[in-house]
Design a protein around this nucleic acid. Structure first.
Lengths: 107, 107
DNA sequence: AAAATAATTCGTATTTTTACGAACAAAAAG
DNA sequence: CTTTTTGTTCGTAAAAATACGAATTATTTT
């Protein structure tokens, strides 16, 4: 009963949705640069409240792009390597689709 | 007064948001395969009402990923090549970020 | 002129997202 | 044991996304 869409389409959309917000893009880029992984350092970079930052981190985590590790009283976040590579592959495939066919279209 | 985020971060997020829905991913893939460009043919592929399909197409158009050409009484849609290539480049850059630094993080 | 075709827009309802401050939890430090 | 530090969760509000059927627009066909 689940899908009118392929698994790949759904996964791609899921990752895209997670990246569909500039704050979350900024978080990902910060984590990828790897200056550090602690929540506080991430929050420091962002022009938003702590609660909001935490929410965005949750969404990235739910989407599978990052993971968190509790190191009391701090929380260390980082990229989820496996899923990051899956996302990279999915977007790679997606953007490899040829657009040349379109030369005849719309102009 | 606009941005706490870079132009690239905002553009990437904008494109990602447009792709953050399986219906819209399916539309893009259909247009990229280029079987045809007419609204009716696109709608035919989708398990949703005409009005909803039209809405999704509008969002893809607003995000710049596609464009429409009126050919009464039909409308021909296609990929917006320029922006598609921009999106491809932005995602390409984004996913090139190294993840190896993370070996020390989270395990 | 009337009817048919193709797609958008309108009105509306439901759900989800985004954001914040305040309350809370859990461990460390005093 | 109390306080401080660090993040999450709660309650809530406002905005945006998703979806539909009905009404509308614009052209073509009859």
């Amino acid at each position: 009963m689940n899908s009118d869409y392929t698994d790949k389409q759904q996964k791609l959309a899921r990752y895209a949705k997670a990246l569909g917000n500039p704050t979350r893009v900024a978080i990902m880029e910060f984590l990828l640069q790897q200056k550090t992984c602690f929540f506080g350092d991430i929050h420091e970079q962002l022009p938003i409240a702590k609660a909001t930052a935490s929410q965005h981190l949750s969404e990235l985590k739910d989407a599978g792009l990052i993971q968190g590790e509790i190191m009391p009283p701090k929380v260390k976040y980082c990229i989820n390597k496996e899923n990051w590579l899956e996302a990279k592959a999915l977007f790679g495939e997606f953007f490899e689709h040829c657009v040349c066919k379109n030369d005849k279209c719309c102009g």
